[in-house]
Design a protein around this nucleic acid. Structure first.
Lengths: 165, 165
DNA sequence: GGTTGACTTGTTATTCTGTAACATGGGAAG
DNA sequence: CTTCCCATGTTACAGAATAACAAGTCAACC
C-alpha cells in the first residue's frame, strides 16, 4: 500500500499527488469490475475529495463543482457523493455532516474514523476488533448489527506535540 | 436498576410510567448534586423524551414544547437539549439527527447505541470493551480519543422474530 | 436508420436542522 | 434594593438534504 493511503500516516505529511493518483486508479479499477461508470461529475467529485484530503461538507464540494461548470444545485453533489459512498470510494462522517474520500478502496471494509479536533484531519482505520466487540455487545440485547458508525474525536499526535490541546 | 431503564429490556414491553418517574427522579438528584437547575423548559423537554421513549428530532420536541406554552423557536429546544446532554440526562444520536433521554443516568458513561431500523427504537448500552478496543486502535495512530460516537443500525430481536427483515 | 428504455444530469422548490445575535426578565448574592 | 448572572424569548439566517420534474445521452434491439 502506498504511503499516501496508509492510514498509519494519515496525520503525517506525505505525497498528496501520489495518493490522489492512486485513489483515482483504484476507483476506476473497482468500478470497472462492478460495471459502474465514473462519469465526469463523479470523477471530479472524487478528485475534489482526494485533493482536499480531509472531510468536506457537501456544499463545499458543490461550490468547487460549480467552478468547473457542473450544476450548482444540491442534488448534483448529493447524487455524486451517494454514488461514491455506495461504491466504497468515499465515506460519510456523521459527526461532521461531511464526506471524505476513502483512504483504502479496493476491498470491502467498515471503517473507524479518528477525527482530530485541532487540525480537522481524519484518519480511517479498519479496527475489526472494535466491531467484533460491538457485535458481541449487541448479541446480549438480541440485536443484529447491520451497519455501524464509529467515529472518535480527539487529538492527533502532531497536534498533541505542538501543544494544541 | 428498574426494569424500565434496564437497557436489556429496551426493545421489550415494560412499565413506561415507572421509567419516566425514575428518569425524572434521577435527573433531579443528579442535578442537585451538580448545582444545576431543572427549569420548567428543561424539565418538560426531558419529560417529552421520557414519554416518547424513543429518539426524537429537535423540531418534534419543539412542537410539543410550544403546545405547552413555551417558546416555539429553535433555540428554545436546542438549548434545553444541549443542557440535558451536557448533564448526562439525554444523548444525541448523530445518525438520526435526533435526541433520546438517557436510559441510565446517575453516573458518568459513554454509551453505545443500537438502533432498530424497523421499529426505530433505540437501546443504550455501556460496552466498555468496545471503547477499549477503539482506544487501542487509536493508539496505533498516535491518536488520543476524547469522545466517540458508536451507533449501530440493525434489527432488534422482536422485529427479527416478526419477520420484519 | 430509428426507437425504446435505462441511466445520468440539470433545475425548481421546499423541508429539515442548527446557530448567531440581541432583547427581556427573574432570582440569588451582596 | 440593587447588581449581576443566568435563563428565556425572538428575529434572522445559514447549512444540510430531498422530492419531483425536465431533458439529454447512449447502448441495445428491431
Amino acid at each position: 500500500m502506498a504511503q499516501g493511503n496508509d492510514p498509519a500516516h494519515a496525520f503525517a505529511p506525505h505525497d498528496h499527488a501520489a495518493c490522489q493518483a492512486r485513489g483515482l486508479d483504484e476507483a476506476e479499477a473497482r468500478l470497472a469490475r462492478q460495471g459502474a461508470k465514473l462519469t465526469p461529475v463523479r470523477r471530479r467529485t472524487l478528485e475534489i475529495l482526494l485533493e482536499a484530503h480531509r472531510a468536506m461538507g457537501a456544499y463545499e464540494v458543490l461550490d468547487r463543482l460549480a467552478e468547473d461548470g457542473f450544476g450548482k444545485q444540491p442534488p448534483v453533489v448529493y447524487r455524486a457523493l451517494e454514488f461514491l459512498v455506495q461504491h466504497g470510494l468515499a465515506h460519510r462522517l456523521q459527526r461532521l455532516n461531511a464526506f471524505a474520500a476513502c483512504a483504502h478502496p479496493g476491498h470491502e471494509h467498515a471503517p473507524v474514523f479518528l477525527i482530530c479536533r485541532s487540525c480537522n484531519r481524519v484518519a480511517e482505520t479498519e479496527a475489526a476488533p472494535v466491531r467484533d466487540r460491538l457485535s458481541k455487545a449487541a448479541q446480549a440485547h438480541d440485536f443484529t448489527v447491520e451497519r455501524a458508525t464509529i467515529e472518535a474525536v480527539g487529538l492527533c499526535g502532531t497536534c498533541a506535540e505542538a501543544g494544541r490541546a
